[in-house]
Deep mutational scan, measured.
Amino acid sequence: PEDLERKVRELQKNGVSPEQIEKILRRDGVDEREVQELVKKVS
Rank of each mutant, 00 (worst) to 15 (best):
2 E>P: 10
2 E>Y: 14
3 D>Q: 09
4 L>N: 05
4 L>T: 04
4 L>E: 01
5 E>V: 12
5 E>N: 05
5 E>T: 07
5 E>W: 15
5 E>P: 04
5 E>F: 12
6 R>I: 06
6 R>H: 08
6 R>N: 09
6 R>A: 12
6 R>P: 02
6 R>Y: 10
6 R>G: 07
7 K>P: 00
7 K>A: 05
7 K>W: 14
7 K>T: 05
7 K>R: 13
7 K>S: 03
7 K>Q: 05
7 K>D: 01
8 V>Q: 00
8 V>L: 04
8 V>N: 00
9 R>P: 00
9 R>W: 08
9 R>G: 02
10 E>K: 09
10 E>N: 10
10 E>M: 13
10 E>F: 14
11 L>I: 00
11 L>M: 10
12 Q>H: 15
12 Q>M: 15
12 Q>S: 13
13 K>M: 11
13 K>W: 06
13 K>T: 05
14 N>K: 13
14 N>I: 10
14 N>F: 10
15 G>E: 01
15 G>L: 02
16 V>L: 14
16 V>I: 10
16 V>N: 07
16 V>R: 06
17 S>E: 04
17 S>D: 06
17 S>G: 06
17 S>Y: 02
17 S>L: 07
18 P>I: 15
18 P>V: 14
19 E>M: 07
19 E>P: 03
19 E>R: 09
19 E>F: 05
19 E>L: 07
20 Q>S: 06
20 Q>F: 05
20 Q>Y: 04
20 Q>N: 09
20 Q>C: 13
20 Q>A: 09
21 I>N: 00
21 I>L: 04
21 I>P: 00
21 I>W: 03
21 I>D: 00
22 E>W: 12
22 E>F: 13
22 E>H: 07
22 E>L: 15
22 E>C: 15
23 K>D: 11
23 K>V: 12
23 K>L: 12
23 K>Q: 13
24 I>G: 01
24 I>Y: 03
25 L>Q: 00
25 L>C: 04
25 L>I: 02
26 R>T: 07
27 R>M: 12
27 R>K: 08
27 R>G: 07
27 R>W: 04
27 R>F: 06
28 D>V: 10
28 D>S: 13
28 D>H: 14
28 D>T: 08
28 D>E: 13
28 D>P: 03
28 D>Q: 14
28 D>A: 15
29 G>E: 02
29 G>I: 02
29 G>S: 02
29 G>N: 03
30 V>T: 03
30 V>F: 14
30 V>G: 02
31 D>F: 03
31 D>A: 09
31 D>R: 04
31 D>V: 04
32 E>W: 10
32 E>K: 04
32 E>S: 06
32 E>Y: 06
34 E>N: 07
34 E>R: 15
34 E>Y: 14
34 E>Q: 13
35 V>N: 01
35 V>W: 07
35 V>Y: 06
35 V>I: 15
36 Q>G: 05
36 Q>D: 05
36 Q>R: 12
37 E>H: 08
37 E>T: 05
37 E>K: 08
37 E>S: 07
38 L>Q: 03
38 L>M: 10
38 L>R: 02
38 L>D: 01
38 L>T: 04
38 L>C: 05
39 V>T: 03
39 V>Y: 04
39 V>L: 15
40 K>M: 08
40 K>Q: 10
40 K>Y: 11
40 K>H: 10
41 K>P: 04
41 K>R: 11
41 K>M: 13
41 K>S: 09
42 V>P: 04
42 V>A: 09
42 V>F: 11
43 S>L: 15
43 S>V: 14
43 S>F: 15
43 S>M: 15
43 S>K: 12
43 S>Y: 15
